[in-house]
Design a protein around this nucleic acid. Sequence first.
DNA 1: AGAACAATATGTAATTTTTACACACTATAA
DNA 2: TTATAGTGTGTAAAAATTACATATTGTTCT
Lengths: 243, 243
Amino acid sequence: MEESLLLSKKGLIRDTVSLVESYPKVALTVDCIIFGFEENKLKILLIRSDLEIFEGKWSLLGDFARETETLEEAAHRVLLERTGMTDVFLDQVGTFSDPYRHPGGRVITAAYCSLLNIKHHELEITENELHWHSVKEIDEMAFDHLEILQSCFRWLQKRIQEHPLGFNLLPEKFSLRELQNLYEAILNIELDRRNFRKKFLSMDFLIDTGEMEEDVKHRPGKLYQFNFEKYEKNKRKWVGIDF
Amino acid sequence: MEESLLLSKKGLIRDTVSLVESYPKVALTVDCIIFGFEENKLKILLIRSDLEIFEGKWSLLGDFARETETLEEAAHRVLLERTGMTDVFLDQVGTFSDPYRHPGGRVITAAYCSLLNIKHHELEITENELHWHSVKEIDEMAFDHLEILQSCFRWLQKRIQEHPLGFNLLPEKFSLRELQNLYEAILNIELDRRNFRKKFLSMDFLIDTGEMEEDVKHRPGKLYQFNFEKYEKNKRKWVGIDF
DNA sequence: AGAACAATATGTAATTTTTACACACTATAA
DNA sequence: TTATAGTGTGTAAAAATTACATATTGTTCT
């Protein structure tokens, strides 16, 4: 084999830049699926689509990825730009690549899930009618965003049974009832109050704050905190929640 | 608001094509992580990298995605081109987007996992030294492929405990011992023979073929088949394997 | 042919986890 | 003061998991 600028003696590719330039290029975006929990309902943060073709339809928070950032960084940036949040849990759920999913041409999008506490994050920016929607009531969206949402919802259902992610949706201090409502709402099942309590207390990462609920019109329940430290330490051994 | 070609009266974007054209574009590839099982070891199909910068290093089977195919279609195509297989299970595991993961510039890659039976798929094409490698022995790869492999391996470990995917790695007819070897190899644990048998038989999707192992130098075991139909039917109720 | 060997096949008792409940307690509201 | 609607705790039965023992059926060695 003759040596050249493109190929080495052994026929290996030298000019990787030209190689990459020869690939077809596509637009790449991230979409953030931001879950919250309020009034015992799972909610999601949406904006109005700003495309005429989707006039009136709701859309996920998304943006194209910049040249020098990872998709995860892009998702964090979108989250920051839209909600002002930093330091938040984010997980890649999937990448959606139907060539015709965007009316303007090929756009691939990576979906990132985030769970946050609605009360802790008052919406300061409400451009494009940004606000919380009850997940159950959403039946139509712009692009393939309904499909993406459903995919993320299934992911969440599975995830909260394996990891105590749900705590990110609750206030710092919460009652066992609130925790149970969260699980019931997301999994769409009813759970036995006593067995639920037993299960979570036996996992041993709830801290009794000594405080009680206030402003409830019945006997107030104890308030707990999530022991992140203990959870992180015992993570390996911990297998799941299993309802 | 003035109506224009770009914007509607309400300020909504009309020209979606220009919108997408304004996004930065990146090269997009798929990489196939093809697992197999042989000699009681989990294996993966690799080729030699054809980039000089990675001379001698091993690389996943990958290719850029074409303009009109989904990533999943691209993965199926790669699989077909490299192994001749059609009709195979494929699952998206994740998308890797470090801006510097490819020496020639930004290339995003989506990882797809596939499990197949090595004996059923003799390698006809052996270009680029395509062959099976023991997963345990791989400690260096081209690009970020080692990271991708590890990510897929963890995915597989989790997945075979939730779904009977492992059957795709075995011959059509297999003994319980082979099945146990598979689980032990992938999960890297030892399982009690009697309890393992009990667990799988109670799941009730193994068909006793009536046939026995041959060419073994000890008492031959029964051969079973996986009852895909029954599994599909009871999927919803079935929660997992749980070791 | 017979004995040693190396697996398969099956069973069972003890333990742990899950499930299905009952009842006492404490705040609010009438 | 009492009814009501929650919280907080316990417990017995059922189911699942675990830790084992023993019988069976081939091969191999002498």
